[in-house]
Design a protein around this nucleic acid. Sequence first.
DNA 1: TGAAACTCTGCAATCGTTTGCAAAGCCGGT
DNA 2: ACCGGCTTTGCAAACGATTGCAGAGTTTCA
Lengths: 330, 330
Amino acid sequence: MPVTIQDVAREAGVSVSTVSRAFTLPEMVRDETRQYVLQTAERLGYRPNRAARGLITGKTGNLGVIVPDLSNPFFPTVLKGVQSRAREADYAVFLADCDENAAEEIALVQAMAKQVDGVILCSSRMSASQLERIVGTTSLVFINRQARDQPAVLMDAAGGMRQAIDHLAALGHRRVAYLNGPRASWSNRERRRGLRRAARHGMEIVELGPFAPRFEGGPHAADLAIAEDVTAIIAYNDLMALGVMSRLADRGVAVPGRMSVVGFDDIPMAGMATPPLTTVAMQNERAGRAAVDLLVNLLTVSGADAGDLRRELECQLIVRASTAVPADHD
Amino acid sequence: MPVTIQDVAREAGVSVSTVSRAFTLPEMVRDETRQYVLQTAERLGYRPNRAARGLITGKTGNLGVIVPDLSNPFFPTVLKGVQSRAREADYAVFLADCDENAAEEIALVQAMAKQVDGVILCSSRMSASQLERIVGTTSLVFINRQARDQPAVLMDAAGGMRQAIDHLAALGHRRVAYLNGPRASWSNRERRRGLRRAARHGMEIVELGPFAPRFEGGPHAADLAIAEDVTAIIAYNDLMALGVMSRLADRGVAVPGRMSVVGFDDIPMAGMATPPLTTVAMQNERAGRAAVDLLVNLLTVSGADAGDLRRELECQLIVRASTAVPADHD
DNA sequence: TGAAACTCTGCAATCGTTTGCAAAGCCGGT
DNA sequence: ACCGGCTTTGCAAACGATTGCAGAGTTTCA
């Protein structure tokens, strides 16, 4: 039922080779015949079978993406970037959700390997040794994770953290809490790295946690922060920050009057909260696009000097209404 | 470099047919040899090339999903259901985002057609006539959209709407506004269908809109609703409801004191808002799983009586803190 | 002991493409 | 008229699997 290259060849009165070449090596076939071939192909509704093509070329024209959890609003945005850039580059994308599970992640990479030209790993949950195991199975590009000399697009979260601290310092905060995310998380380590600069401002940082990087982690964290008598809170991510604000509201602690709150990620919800959340925006969609660029580049270039293997994206502090000058401690 | 069936055959001292059968028709090869073959396959790290297999069997083992917009939090959750069920059924999933664009959606279905055994269309944006054009290109299952006799999993939004109205009626509301989503949207029509029952309660419904089904559509809608002097608002979806609440807060209209608000979808954010939003929950993840079930069933069953072609999922009203007894109109 | 009936395995064709190689046609130069 | 070179086309062999058919053993039964 589906129309193959043979059908086009027969209909156009040429050999399959010619049809094939009309598509892939246009300059090798006479203008006149090529026109005719393409035209009959169009008429019959022919679309080359990529699987068959891949069998012989070794390239599938597909790429894979693995994310830890689709229901974390961070990932759909980067996925969207991957999507659109992939389509521009004429790649189709395989998606998999590993449910925050490193073992599953490995299994998925291996399952995908044969069907894709490369895979993009978002915020991989794998340990360093697990990573070793899959390097080499297929071309890999990491997002938000640095692994040996593997290509990666990184967010300068440390820089974002510095901006957040600078912002709070400028407002006059002298004692702020940082609410840790998962201890093993690479992102959390990055954020903490940015924290170190705080000393320069003579600012005191109280580290709390780790907490679950979700809304549910917020209330608990908020209580601890209040007890520590800080005037501002920086949360590992927006979800947690939202949970914090919700708890603060319940306990009658005014934001930003009595307590300033800063998040990370700028998930869509951040701007809709009350008050709108000050947060460090990551360029998710661009990260997704950049990852595809890196991968495509890696695949097409001879392999030797594939240009930049690393791409670092700036973060930007978005100041909204959840931060303000600290209240006087009467 | 990648290990093929030939390698396994050579290493195990049998023919490729035997290796192939050891995997696909186990009962056809002697226990002893099968064990040995599988064992060497395992040792060499052999994984069958699904593309090659697909070429001859006509089945790819892949399925596609097309969503209108990944950044709408509604879709990642159904996607998650699709994901997990697909993996259980040993299918890999292709994902595409059509950017709310019907033409793009068609193009994507056609592009996918050859690489998948079927595709799942979430909340398709196509018109009826556009749908006609793609029916037949590949097996289709719809989510949240009814199209002729095509298999579909539907959410009983009308039923959900009735629950919402009943709830408001029970609280004593007599005049409520419904904020329409996009006019062409099938979902919006479904919700309106549920609205008709309102008459029975002697309740007065004021229809407003259409509005953009996003947070940004909320403020405008809120202003109009206030002007209509209603005591409760039902929004097309949660995003809009959130925008409404934000605007009401800005204008000093207490929720639920002065105005009750109900949304649709129960996106993760709904429970985190202040006050937590009363909303009609859709079983997104289950819908995703159900769609895969339908599709797989459609593909494996001989084709004749494929069992149920339609699956309707209940909606459930989640009463949170954004609805209450209306204030006296002093 | 021989034939029939099974069980198990291998040969080779096939799926829809791409691509190296060679054939065919055309050109101009001698 | 012939030869060399160029352009355009076709033939046929891959790619990595599956599967109908037939052959080689083995068992069963008369």
